[in-house]
Design a protein around this nucleic acid. Structure first.
Lengths: 116, 116
DNA sequence: GTAATCTACAACCAAATGGTTGTAGATGAA
DNA sequence: TTCATCTACAACCATTTGGTTGTAGATTAC
């Protein structure tokens, strides 16, 4: 069962964060091992500041968190949020399968409504 | 088992397409029932051209396809690609669980490499 | 103390995004 | 035929994105 619902903009942030190959790689790195930002930055052919921004995007999406340790910031992954993203996609698959009853609990959103 | 691999930019397109609440809703609509673009457009408080662009983003991501029927374009969903996106996220979860053997077949990417 | 390292953040820039209006071509209905 | 509908697409605009360089503050190493 789902603990609590993600808002539209939180979901936006999650998928946006995953829509960049560098960020996906950073996330993968963070999932496999906790590392400092500068340690991560050394792996990519771009400036430290650019990597810092990618990390910030992942952090805004709550896919990772940072923990200050001395002069370093250690990047931790948040597998719980990833699991919820997976559930979201599963819910779309359920729609296709016509299993609307499970959708209601997983992907409940008030009707996106319009004109008349 | 995975049929064939998605490229980085294809994955970029998929997650980018899902990173917008209107597009997620259009996709959900298309999953539940095939509809024309104008029929979809009537549901949202924005111009037809704006919805047309959202549909184009979903189409570029291959999450949907369009089929011309008379003067209408019917939007079909592509659940296969959604399934692959789900597998991608599952692979990240596997990384976290330390199950690297399954990652190799699901998420194989040549090492993203850099300086020396 | 001094120097090196790690981080934060501002300023800047080109390109992409997400919306708009307007025009025009195809198709269907009367 | 004529009119309405559906679609495509161009042009435009404000904002965001994804990169850069540069400056400055904390912390660690020597």
């Amino acid at each position: 069962m789902v603990v609590d619902e993600l808002s539209d903009s939180e979901i936006d942030n999650i998928f946006h964060a995953l829509a960049d190959a560098t960020r996906r790689d950073i996330f993968k790195q963070a999932m496999s091992r906790e590392q400092s930002v500068s340690e991560l930055a050394r792996r990519y052919a771009m400036s430290f500041a650019a990597v810092q921004k990618h990390v910030a995007v992942l952090e805004r999406a709550m896919l990772i968190t940072k923990e200050k340790r001395g002069r370093e910031q250690i990047v931790h992954s948040n597998p719980e949020l990833l699991r919820r993203a997976t559930e979201l996609l599963d819910a779309y698959q359920d729609i296709w399968r016509g299993r609307t009853e499970r959708i209601e609990e997983i992907l409940f959103e008030p009707e996106r409504e319009v004109e008349s």
